[in-house]
Design a protein around this nucleic acid. Structure first.
Lengths: 197, 197
DNA sequence: ACCTGAACACCGTTCAAGT
DNA sequence: ACCTGAACACCGTTCAAGT
């Protein structure tokens, strides 16, 4: 029993943590329930108590990914809360940083689902979207654009940042090109949206 | 021998075609070399003659995906070649349509690579990027923006369309929301870029 | 050049049994 | 409630052998 004093009711947490490391270091293909169990010092059937199947583990990883990304964006945005364009740049840059550090996890978060994504994942993803929306609301307060445009501009910003992150994570462009890209996008968003109508 | 008159030197093509169907209907996880071999009526070792391993098959699928997407975008753009904004909308809409019809394939095309993507895939992806760049060049000719901005604006458009496609393919937004999004993006791109500098 | 078929190691999943 | 361990079906990969 002193062999594994580590898990006393926290096997679930240990599996998730180890899974995130494998994802980071060796990618999704290398992620195996049996290997995780082995490394945690439990039998191969043990994970089943916490995750009914492999898909359930992946869903939990995606959910945690969204929560972490949301948290990182919030923290970055709050540090630059005085200037709207700087706020957006800080948030987008945090998003891009996450993509660079956790490319396989980001893939998993936005992987195609044949059926609807599970409730917990959907909810975590919406929390992230709500955060982005909140950042745009601050822009309205600062007079950058009318309140009626917030929904569309939030979607536009989200898509652009997500696209830039995908291009960087899949090695189509460098991280620096990604940063320049979001800089251009935000400049266009702030100036164009103000001038437009 | 009349059992399989179908493959006489075209097993490779048969495997690819069948793999694309599986990807479309049941997703990446359901894609198995052994099943493909079974359905093609050959032994499980046969695919090895054409694809050294599973990753090689996936790379070939990604490469073909890029070539097809490029082709579809070119065809859509040429139909609306008279008006620059309409050209961009048609191209972006074709991209989005591809994402809706082939979400798992698009995932595969932009999947994270731990090491560099193979030459053939990289080359096909660059061909797509070159097509996008060519569309923007036409905008320069039409006086929509200075030639010096083409590289950055191409990247910006590519990222936004890719992001919108990911959001649609992963069921975060509907296809209609995706269309509206790219409409906004292109309007902003054309007007903002002209007014900006 | 292309395909067969046995062999190996690994995997996800199920389930009766233990504590 | 949580974990063990045997069992099953499936998979990717290797390789000697065939044509």
């Amino acid at each position: 029993m002193s062999q594994r004093p580590f898990h006393h009711g926290n096997l679930r947490a240990a599996l998730l943590e180890r899974a995130e490391a494998v994802l980071r270091e060796r990618g999704l293909d290398a992620l195996s329930l049996r290997e995780l169990a082995r490394e945690a010092g439990v039998s191969h059937g043990a994970p089943r108590s916490h995750f009914p199947d492999r898909a359930a583990l992946l869903d939990a990883l995606a959910e945690r990914g969204f929560l972490r990304l949301d948290e990182e964006i919030r923290r970055a945005a709050v540090r630059e809360r005085d200037d709207h364009a700087r706020t957006l740049r800080a948030a987008a840059s945090a998003y891009l940083g996450f993509a660079v550090r956790e490319p396989a996890l980001l893939d998993l978060m936005f992987a195609t689902k044949v059926d609807e994504p599970p409730e917990a994942v959907r909810s975590a993803a919406e929390r992230l979207f709500a955060t982005m929306s909140g950042l745009m609301d601050a822009g309205v307060a600062a007079g950058a654009y009318p309140a009626s445009d917030v929904a569309r501009l939030t979607l536009l910003l989200s898509a652009t940042v997500q696209g830039a992150s995908t291009l960087v994570a899949s090695r189509r462009i460098t991280a620096d090109q990604g940063e320049a890209l979001i800089g251009d996008a935000i400049a266009l968003l702030c100036s164009g949206a103000a001038a437009g109508r």
